[in-house]
Simulated scan of single mutants.
Amino acid sequence: MPGITRDEVTHLARLSRLELSEAEVGDFTGQLNAIVEAVARVSEVAGQDVAPTSHPLPLTNVMRADEVRPSLAPEQALSGAPAQELQRFKVPQILGED
């Protein structure tokens, strides 16, 4: 598999509006080639018998079941509020809208 060239790194830097020195272009060329090689190695390992997954371990939902429970009455919930209106907390206007 052909690697990333200095010209490609320079082109990507220009597209990204990055100003890179010649030393940085060389460094990034080597780093990007290492990344491409690592991805290629992973692709070689995954055979036809390995199903694609998003996570190496099976995930299950560990949250409790959503069930209806008694809660505070509106009066109880609003009892400590400094201001209330229409059974809601009243707060200062912040967006300048009605």
Rank of each mutant, 00 (worst) to 15 (best):
E44G: 13
E44S: 15
E44D: 11
E44P: 12
V45D: 13
V45E: 12
V45P: 03
A46L: 15
A46H: 06
A46Y: 04
A46N: 10
A46W: 05
A46F: 09
G47V: 02
G47Y: 01
G47F: 00
G47L: 01
Q48S: 09
Q48N: 05
Q48M: 03
Q48P: 12
Q48L: 05
D49V: 01
D49L: 02
V50S: 00
V50C: 01
V50W: 00
A51L: 11
A51V: 04
A51C: 03
P52Q: 06
P52M: 03
P52T: 04
P52R: 02
P52V: 04
P52D: 15
P52K: 02
P52A: 13
T53M: 11
T53N: 08
T53K: 09
S54E: 15
S54D: 15
S54G: 15
S54K: 03
S54N: 13
S54V: 15
S54R: 06
H55I: 08
H55S: 13
H55D: 15
H55W: 15
H55K: 02
H55Y: 15
P56S: 11
P56V: 09
P56W: 08
P56Y: 07
P56Q: 05
P56C: 08
P56T: 05
L57T: 05
L57F: 10
L57H: 03
L57Y: 05
P58E: 14
P58T: 10
P58G: 12
L59M: 05
L59V: 09
L59R: 01
L59N: 00
L59W: 02
T60W: 05
T60I: 06
T60M: 07
T60K: 04
T60N: 06
N61Q: 07
N61G: 03
V62E: 08
V62L: 09
V62G: 14
V62R: 12
V62T: 13
M63G: 12
M63E: 13
M63Q: 09
R64V: 13
A65R: 04
A65W: 01
A65Q: 08
A65V: 06
A65F: 03
A65T: 10
A65G: 05
D66I: 14
D66C: 09
D66P: 00
D66E: 14
D66W: 07
D66L: 14
D66Y: 07
D66S: 08
E67F: 06
E67T: 08
E67S: 10
E67Q: 08
E67I: 13
E67L: 14
E67W: 03
V68Q: 03
V68W: 01
R69S: 12
R69T: 13
R69L: 12
P70H: 07
P70K: 02
P70S: 07
P70L: 09
P70E: 00
P70V: 10
S71L: 08
S71R: 12
S71F: 11
S71G: 13
S71P: 03
S71D: 03
S71C: 11
S71Q: 07
L72D: 03
L72E: 03
L72W: 10
L72T: 08
L72A: 10
L72P: 09
L72Q: 12
A73N: 09
A73Q: 09
A73R: 15
